[in-house]
Each structure stands twice: as structure tokens, then as C-alpha cells.
Design a binder for these strands. Structure first.
Lengths: 89, 89
DNA sequence: TATATAATTAGATATATATCTAAACATCTA
DNA sequence: TAGATGTTTAGATATATATCTAATTATATA
């Protein structure tokens, strides 16, 4: 996954909200859905984008899928972004 | 300009290349064009996106427009991104 | 002032993506 | 095992965007 693709994954308002929610605690898809004004199908799509960008992971717990931030990956991406953006002329 | 919109501006490979080139030195549109495999029209579009995201600025020098990175804005955005990404649960 | 050079704008097109409804799949429980 | 609950997948649609060619605008110079 390229840095551009990571930026693309981060460039949607709803995905930002999802990441913000997951910063506080792990949440089921249903719980995330309650906080957003989109259908479950659309939410599923966004979670898929975030998963493919390796920004979140889901684990099944009974009927629910619990999503969490991939903190180590977030850290790594932060490093890359800082390296890219902060590098002076 | 929201953080999502900034991410969107950063999410294209050609725009990444433009920023990379401008990290080294200020360049005219023509000089940037020589490094990319796109038409000048497309390049103009990408420069417009980067300008609207406040990531670069252009100044006219005779017949040429010289583009440069907006370093202070880049710094500010870096801060925001780090704040967003590094904030733990 | 006519021509050349540099860059942008206009208009068209093709691809990507955000969204929805409806259907399917997975799991739990009575 | 049938029905309820939670999530994803399929298929459709509308909007956004990356790209191109051709035309236009801005500047310099012969």
C-alpha cells in the first residue's frame, strides 16, 4: 500500500469519523453505525477501505464484528508522513 | 480546508511527485512537466488542486509561473496529522 | 505589432468512488 | 431447526476526478 493510497483512505469524512471513534475504544459495526448517518452497507464499504489500508482490523465476537485501530500501523504511517512533509529543501 | 480535503490533495501519485520535486527547489510549470508523463493541461489541474489545498504557491516571473512549497502550511498540516494519528486510546 | 513561448481554461470522456436498496451470509437462541 | 440479529455482498446510480485535445490568455521579443 503506497502512501498515496493511505492518504486516499484517510480522505473521506466518514472514514475520519470512524477512526476518531475507534481511537476511544473498540466498537462493533452496529455501534459505529449509530454514530454515522449512512446505511450499514455504506459503512461496510468504508470499513473495507480502512481494512485494505491496514488502518483497522475486525475480529468476530459472536454475531458482532469488533473493529479496532491498528495502532502500530498508524504510528508507522505517521512516521512516513512526517518524513515526507517535514523534509526541508 | 478540512484535514480530509488535505488528505485528498495528497492522495494522487502525480501530486506527490510534484511536492517531492518542489522540496528540492522552486520550479516552473514547464520544468515540473518535464519530470512527469502528463500533459500541461493535466499538470495545471494538479497544481490548482495543490494551490487550493494551500500546499503550494505560484508566482509569475516573466512568461513563467514559478511554484514553491508552502513550508509553513506543510508544517502546520504535519502537526495536525500527527495529532490526529498519534493520539492514543 | 506579429509571432513565439508559457500556462491556464473549456469541454469531453473514462474511471473511481460514495451511496443506496435488496439479497445473502453468519451466528445466536428459543 | 426456525426465526431474529448483525454484517457483508451484489447490483445500480450519481457524483467526483484524472486525463486528454483544442482554444484562450499572458508575456516577451523580433
Amino acid at each position: 500500500m503506497s502512501l498515496s493510497q493511505t492518504f486516499a483512505a484517510l480522505s473521506d469524512q466518514n472514514r475520519q469519523k470512524i477512526l476518531d471513534l475507534l481511537k476511544k475504544r473498540d466498537l462493533s459495526v452496529g455501534d459505529i453505525g449509530k454514530k454515522l448517518s449512512i446505511t450499514m452497507a455504506t459503512l461496510s464499504h468504508h470499513l473495507d477501505v480502512l481494512k485494505r489500508a491496514d488502518l483497522v482490523s475486525g475480529r468476530r465476537e459472536g454475531q458482532q464484528i469488533i473493529y479496532s485501530l491498528n495502532l502500530s500501523v498508524m504510528e508507522e504511517i505517521t512516521e512516513q508522513i512526517v518524513k515526507f512533509l517535514k523534509h526541508k529543501k
